[in-house]
């Protein structure tokens, strides 16, 4: 069963971005390039920030190994996420307080365990 990316709405993720325990899937979205559990938990980039930058870059297909679906329309896909919400579901706080990342973009989204 495929899962949808909370950043770009790409519907072909192999795993849910977060497991029930709150752990990241470590999957790199082939569409927008967000790595769940790394881009957020380690790099400290939020869904909103990543989405904004991805849109500003022209919504390019990210993956080298996973080809874009036939007839892939980035704008139509992006319209789904932007029509739903302008930001991802608010993540619940992590069990342990995370130290801020080395840059100032801010902590990434977290889910409960």
């Amino acid at each position: 069963m495929n899962h949808s990316c909370p950043i770009c709405a790409y519907p072909g993720l192999e795993e849910p971005p977060r497991s029930p325990s709150g752990g990241g899937s470590y999957e790199i979205c082939p569409c927008c390039g967000f790595q769940f559990g790394v881009t957020d938990d380690d790099d400290g980039v939020s869904y909103d920030t990543w989405r904004l930058h991805w849109a500003e870059e022209g919504m390019p297909w990210f993956s080298r190994g996973v080809p874009a679906p036939a007839g892939w329309d980035a704008r139509a896909q992006f319209a789904k996420v932007s029509s739903k919400t302008s930001s991802p579901p608010a993540p619940k706080p992590a069990p342990k307080p995370a130290k801020p990342g080395p840059t100032a973009i801010g902590p990434g989204p977290r889910r409960p365990r």
């Binding site: 497991s19 325990s21 709150g22 752990g23 899937s25 470590y26 999957e27 790595q35 790394v38 938990d41 380690d42 790099d43 400290g44 992590a94 069990p95 342990k96 995370a98 130290k99 990342g101 080395p102 365990r113």
Partner: peptide, 18 residues
């Protein structure tokens, strides 16, 4: 393997579930 990298943030592993 799901992924393999060197986290830049201290405490990254401590914050992982399991």
């Amino acid at each position: 393997t799901k992924t393999y990298f060197k986290p830049g943030r201290r405490g990254y592993f401590d914050d992982q579930p399991g």
